[in-house]
Amino acid sequence: MLFLDSLVERQLQDAQQQGKFDNLPGAGKPLQLDDDSQVPEDLRMSYRILKMSGFLPETLQLRQEALTLQTLLVNATNAEERSTFHTHLAVIKLKISQAGLSTQFLEDDMYGEDVKGKLLGKNKS
């Protein structure tokens, strides 16, 4: 393994001397390191690569989808739209629960939207 490490290090140094890293996005700016302390050490690099490539773990995609559906549900203008969004949201909540995660973040958001709606005199029930 030592040989491979030194080979890679040498190639990186050569590339740096040739200026191949000079025009990279974010050059000269501080690194923004994510808190990945909850990710097992052997999976961190894989998660970073996936994240930089624009991919999210399925559970995070489900959370994002649920939040989008919830926003659509709150802003729906007719009963048919609300029913469709509500059904899709229920399915996503079930998938999140089956993955062993909490859906509390959705209830907290909905409570805030309900209070905001009542204060503004909007009742979308």
Rank of each mutant, 00 (worst) to 15 (best):
L2E: 13
F3W: 05
D5I: 09
D5M: 06
D5V: 08
L7R: 08
V8I: 15
Q11C: 10
Q13K: 15
Q13M: 07
A15P: 02
Q16V: 06
N23H: 12
L24I: 14
P25N: 07
G26V: 07
A27V: 12
L31A: 15
Q32W: 00
L33E: 14
D34N: 06
D34Y: 04
D35I: 04
D36Y: 01
S37G: 07
V39L: 03
R44G: 00
R44F: 03
M45W: 02
Y47G: 02
I49W: 00
K51E: 09
M52K: 12
M52T: 05
F55S: 08
F55I: 04
E58Q: 14
L60I: 00
L62I: 06
R63T: 03
L67R: 11
L69E: 01
L72N: 08
L72F: 07
L73P: 00
N75Q: 12
T77Y: 03
A79R: 11
R82A: 15
T84A: 15
A90L: 11
A90G: 05
V91Q: 10
I92E: 02
K93R: 15
L94Y: 07
L94R: 12
I96Y: 03
A99Q: 10
G100A: 01
S102W: 04
F105Q: 04
L106P: 06
D108E: 15
M110R: 15
M110T: 13
G112W: 06
G112F: 07
D114K: 14
K116E: 13
L119N: 13
K122E: 12
K122D: 07
K122A: 07
N123R: 08
